[in-house]
Design a binder for these strands. Structure first.
Length: 934
DNA sequence: GAGCACTGC
């Protein structure tokens, strides 16, 4: 498993002096700890094996459950944990339990509908005659399960007879305030299916998907559609494609009504025909892709070279076709998989769906995908798409990737943090696994760099088929690019033929400004111009507003999409003919010296500029207007955006790598190495958190922390929560802090209302407790959409937090922490101490007579961010979640603490002399005098 | 009294 033993080939890099001497302190008996750590790893192995058995049993019975939170084993375990802490549970309100029940009820409903849809799907796509005996049996089984479940459920649907009205008294005779409030809040509840009238059946599957799932479904639909229309003009038998659409025409219905006796047969036959035609058209599309002509040459090259760089533009078909070629060539014969990584979840899902369709198999069987919160694979899976982060996680359990015969790293040019780490790990593996085939797929500009990194691996070029894009530059630099962009929009609108416009701006603020400018211009120009439909798109925009960019452009109007760089890679908008590129983007940077993150507007790279221009050539020839000069493009822009690994805090990555037995992180074989300071800071932090011992070895604590998909500070807080019996609250905080930045929604136009609503959510003690309060409301009001809207909270973020929380709660068992709620909710010090156990280095003390704070460990002055509820209260000591540099150095998400807790939770870092209340010390007279003079 | 681009586990 994760921890490699002394024989590991990577141990050659083991260094003794990774931890700076001044950090060395007594962390207990290292040998004993190492023993415990290995014992822990052993237990994980056993549990993983059990789970694997469990999974195989489940998947052989029925459809694999993508989110197993309600499945037998995990809920059983959490129940027993509840039982252990029975005493404490009694004291806490039963509310949490009730919400959980309600949640499970909802979940059950959605599972049922999913099963129903799956059955319908199966019957439609693979009509009975096309099924094998086993598959037929399975289908029957599923149907039976559905029938029984429905029957059972119907018993509860309409309760007849007398029902005791609920009161608000608890078992102890006190008024349950929360329950009462819940009754008051009833109006917030979503209209149920039955309210709308004709019953729950009409809802269909869409009705029960979460907003997040719907969004992902829409995204998938977009990506899938792309393949069709784009190729339509270029392939000879594009007509075959139209034929399917005609298939739903009225002829079919008429004919079948004429002869009702054979209706079923006819239907079966026509479905079969349709499937056949579809298969033929799929084949035609496959053969029309540029990569098809290179199939044999490509396979030969892969055979000959363990590492191959594949250079191909989008639309060449490399992502969908190459794994299929490998499968056809027998790379999965020995039971090993073909893996393909993607930087984004939506891409992994949609590509897998497409490939399953092309290979005519069920998604999740031979072809599957694996992303966070969702593993749609089975033992049968031989072609597996996944996110790059997921493969990185797999390394922890399978460090030699033994289950794979071939790995393709797709979109390598995007250089995500995970991709970069994967490069190094995979390069290492190829040394002792000569049978493993590695493919690095990238856009044109970067292939050479990858080749030299992988010991001059050959480059295989596949031409793309993008439409030509004419590029225009300004003659002189533009002083105000926002104004220039707006002017260009109007210019295009007035002078160019139809086609939508895409403008790249840096953020929400700019987009809102541009929206306003365009509105004003439209008013000023009046009827002289045709209508202009302005659509903003950025990640933090609520989903329903995001969806608007996909609405078709009305006649006599032109759509203008104002986008951040979300439109550069993540979202593809059809119909874009013109791109306006001011040449800027916001980029996150990390300063290892101050451990501060900041988001700065920087000129984008030539790479990014070309990517942006390419967005104009997806449906036909396009035009790109760059709001800078050709000279600037050639001389001022960087070649590439600085890779993420050089702009990130590497604390989490460092723990992951060290858990793999890679101890010398400074000399690790990065394709672009991060700064030595960043690596040292990361290691130093891990040491302070107790994840490493004085020898720089991973401790048992560290090994447990590495299992969590959390920042090490957060992971440590979660481990510490066991001591304070509040893992429940800390798990919630893990989830909410993760989405915290996209939680509050504040559009410019409704600024005051939004702020007022956010103010109403504030709780005493600090922002963390406000977050916990938001979570309670969210669960109590059953994930209400209207409640989110009224409180200007992003439902998408809360849904994501719900997923994260579920995952964390599941992992608690794995890291051997019992799930417990704070036994005394009135006393929040346990929650605070647990958080402090991870965030003790994020502590600041108020400076006497000032509004500002001084960091406890560094002589640095910071301010509490104005969005914090403690901005006014200004307590003497605070703990913060993050430190950001914007117009000032701000600490964000702040909690009031008692400095004495520091000595309790981090005695190795804080001594009593560190926490003396300086504001109560007398100021020497001469200093006082001096101050007055200034 | 500020202003959060985008991913991922």
């Amino acid at each position: 498993m994760g921890t490699r033993d002394e024989k590991s080939p990577r141990d050659k890099g083991r260094r003794k002096d990774v931890v700076p001497c001044h950090l060395v302190n007594d962390q207990g008996d290292d040998a004993l700890d190492a023993e415990e750590r290995d014992a822990f790893a052993q237990r994980l192995r056993v549990r993983d094996r059990d789970r694997e058995h469990d999974r195989s049993r489940r998947s052989s019975l029925g459809p694999s459950s993508s989110r197993p939170e309600g499945s037998g084993s995990s809920s059983r375990t959490s129940r027993s944990i509840h039982h252990d802490s029975h005493q404490r549970q009694e004291v806490t309100s039963d509310l949490r339990e009730r919400s959980r029940q309600e949640y499970l009820k909802k979940r059950e409903q959605s599972r049922l509908e999913l099963l129903e849809a799956q059955i319908a799907d199966e019957e439609m796509l693979f009509h009975k005659s096309a099924l094998t005996d086993t598959e037929r049996r399975q289908l029957e089984y599923q149907k039976e399960v559905l029938r029984i479940a429905k029957e059972r459920k119907d018993i509860n649907v309409d309760v007849e007879g007398y029902v005791m009205p609920e009161d608000y008294l608890t078992t102890k005779g006190k008024i349950d305030r929360k329950r009462k409030e819940q009754a008051l809040y009833q109006r917030y509840q979503e209209p149920k299916g039955s309210v709308s009238g004709s019953g729950k059946d009409e809802k269909g599957i869409g009705g029960n998907l979460s907003e997040l799932e719907q969004w992902e479904a829409r995204q998938i639909a977009r990506t899938k559609v792309k393949v069709g229309p784009q190729d339509k003009g270029t392939i000879p038998d594009a007509d075959a494609y139209d034929f399917i659409i005609d298939e739903t025409g009225i002829d079919f219905v008429l004919e079948s009504t004429l002869d009702p006796a054979t209706e079923a047969d006819r239907e079966a036959q026509s479905l079969l025909d349709a499937a056949e035609r579809k298969q033929k058209s799929i084949q035609a599309v496959r053969e029309s892709l540029p990569v098809y002509d290179y199939r044999d040459a490509l396979l030969a090259a892969i055979e000959d070279h363990p590492v191959l760089i594949i250079e191909g533009e989008t639309g060449s078909g490399k992502t969908t076709q190459i794994p299929q070629y490998l499968y056809e060539a027998g790379y999965s014969k020995d039971g090993r998989k073909i893996g393909c990584t993607q930087p984004r979840r939506v891409a992994a899902m949609s590509v897998a769906a497409r490939v399953a369709e092309e290979m005519r198999v069920h998604l999740g069987r031979e072809v599957g995908y694996s992303i966070r919160f969702e593993d749609k694979t089975s033992e049968k899976t031989v072609v597996k798409y996944m996110t790059d982060g997921m493969l990185l996680r797999e390394f922890l359990t399978e460090p030699d990737l033994d289950g794979y015969s071939c790995i393709m790293i797709d979109e390598a040019h995007e250089r995500t943090l995970s991709t970069d780490i994967l490069f190094a790990l995979i390069k290492d593996i190829t040394r002792y696994r000569p049978d493993l085939r590695v493919l690095i797929a990238s856009a044109t500009m970067d292939a050479q760099k990858f080749s030299s990194y992988f010991d001059d691996a050959p480059i295989f070029k596949i031409p793309g088929r993008p439409f030509p894009v004419d590029i225009y530059y300004t003659l002189a630099p533009e002083a105000n690019y926002l104004q220039a962009a707006v002017t260009t929009v109007l210019q295009i609108h007035a002078s160019q033929p139809t086609g939508d416009i895409l403008v790249f701006l840096t953020g929400q603020g700019e987009i809102e400004q541009a929206q306003e400018l365009l509105r004003q211009a439209r008013v000023a120009l009046g009827r002289r111009i045709k209508d202009l439909l302005v659509c903003p798109i950025y990640a933090n925009l609520p989903s329903d507003l995001q969806a608007q960019i996909f609405n078709p452009t009305p006649e006599n109007a032109r759509k203008v999409v104002l986008a951040t760089n979300i439109a550069e890679t993540s979202i593809t908008i059809d119909g874009i003919v013109y791109v306006i590129d001011p040449g800027f983007q916001k980029l996150k940077t990390f300063d290892p010296h101050t451990e501060m993150e900041s988001l700065v507007v920087t000129p984008c790279s030539r790479n990014a500029a070309n990517q942006r221009a390419g967005r104009a050539g997806r449906v036909g020839p396009g035009k790109c207007f760059r709001l800078y000069t050709l000279w600037a493009y050639e001389n001022e822009l960087e070649d590439h955006t600085i890779p993420e690994i050089q702009r990130s805090n590497l604390c989490m990555v460092a723990l992951q790598l060290m858990s793999l037995g890679i101890n010398n992180l400074v000399e690790f074989d990065y394709i672009d190495p991060p700064s030595v300071t960043t690596v040292q800071k990361a290691i130093g932090q891990l040491y302070m958190l107790g994840a490493l011992n004085a020898k720089g070895e991973v401790t048992k604590t560290g090994r447990r922390m590495a299992e969590l998909p959390l920042d090490p500070k957060m992971a440590k807080a979660l481990l510490a929560s066991a001591k304070y019996h509040c893992s429940d609250e800390i798990a919630t905080l893990c989830a909410l802090l993760d989405v915290q930045s996209a939680l509050y929604y504040r559009p410019k136009a409704e600024k005051l209302n939004a702020e007022k609503a956010h103010q109403n959510l504030v709780q005493p003690g600090g922002d963390h407790f406000t977050l916990l309060h938001i979570w309670e409301q969210w669960v109590q009001l059953e994930y209400s959409e209207s409640w989110c809207r009224e409180n200007y909270l992003q439902r998408r973020s809360l849904l994501r937090a719900t997923d994260i929380r579920e995952q964390i709660v599941r992992l608690l068992e794995r890291i051997e922490v019992p799930l417990e709620s704070n036994p005394n909710p009135a006393d929040t010090s346990g929650v605070a101490k647990a958080m402090l156990a991870g965030y003790f280095s994020n502590v600041a003390q108020r400076q006497r007579g000032e509004d500002s704070y001084k960091l406890a460990k560094r002589k640095e002055t910071v301010l509490v961010h104005p969005s914090s509820s403690l901005r006014e209260a200004k307590p003497p000591w605070v703990m913060y979640y993050e430190l950001v540099m914007t117009s000032e150095k701000f600490v964000r998400v702040v909690m009031e603490i008692n400095p004495e807790w520091l000595i309790e939770v981090a005695p190795h870092e804080f001594k009593p002399s560190d926490i003396v209340d300086k504001s109560k010390q007398k100021m020497p007279k001469f200093l006082k005098k001096a101050r007055e003079l200034i």
